[in-house]
Design a binder for these strands. Structure first.
Lengths: 112, 112
DNA sequence: TCCTTCTGCAACGTTTGGTTGCAGATGACG
DNA sequence: CGTCATCTGCAACCAAACGTTGCAGAAGGA
């Protein structure tokens, strides 16, 4: 019984750089490719490509403002992503708990 | 304030195929590259490479058994990975909550 | 012994994350 | 208004990751 996961959404937050970008956008409210790249160890162009990916899965939205393109996190979509993290975590946790219970049961039956 | 995340560990569970492999290993207790590839849409060789990745980050361990190489999930390490999922999820959740509170506060001050 | 099967290794192609270089558009300022 | 700085997109290129096919070696079963 595996959990229903949107692979595209998951892969989007699977990349460390993209995760840090989301952190930055959440912290500052908004940002551009240039401002984000100032706080990241990659070039503006790399950031721009990541923004395309994040936009494609709906995690961010663009607002053209003069010569800038200001990006903002889509809170509903990020909440959905967080829910998927929780789902997978819970599923694995449940399996681990079950394995642990079985192991303890075996241990008990060995001891007596 | 970002969460401390082991990028290698996170990337390991970021791949959809590897995640399904972990699911299969948890469900069956153990498996080989061949048995896993039977339940996956990729070839045995692809699975073997993924197993190398999972082994490198300590999420699985190998037990040579005759001509087979039997893989098993390392429960402690998977628990660590689950904890990271929970950490990142909680951090984002907290930010989203804060943004929501601020938005509601602004809304209230507009209304009056 | 012979055949099946499980494995590893090598070569290759495609996608992805990253770089540099350059040209266009827009805002700021003399 | 003209110039200059800055923000952007596009193209070429490189390396690593994910996937494939093909082949050879080792171990178990008839």
């Amino acid at each position: 019984m595996s959990v229903a996961v949107d692979d595209d959404l998951w892969s989007a937050i699977g990349d460390p750089t993209r995760r840090r970008m989301l952190d930055l956008l959440l912290a500052d409210g908004a940002g551009t490719a240039t401002t984000l790249s100032d706080s990241l160890p990659v070039t503006r162009q790399a950031v721009a490509k990541h923004l395309v990916v994040l936009d494609r899965v709906g995690l961010v939205h663009v607002t053209p403002a003069g010569r800038e393109r200001r990006y903002r996190v889509d809170e509903a979509q990020l909440a959905r992503a967080v829910a998927q993290l929780a789902d997978v975590g819970a599923a694995w946790d449940a399996r681990l708990q079950r394995i642990k219970r079985i192991a303890e049961a075996i241990e008990r039956s060995q001891k007596r």
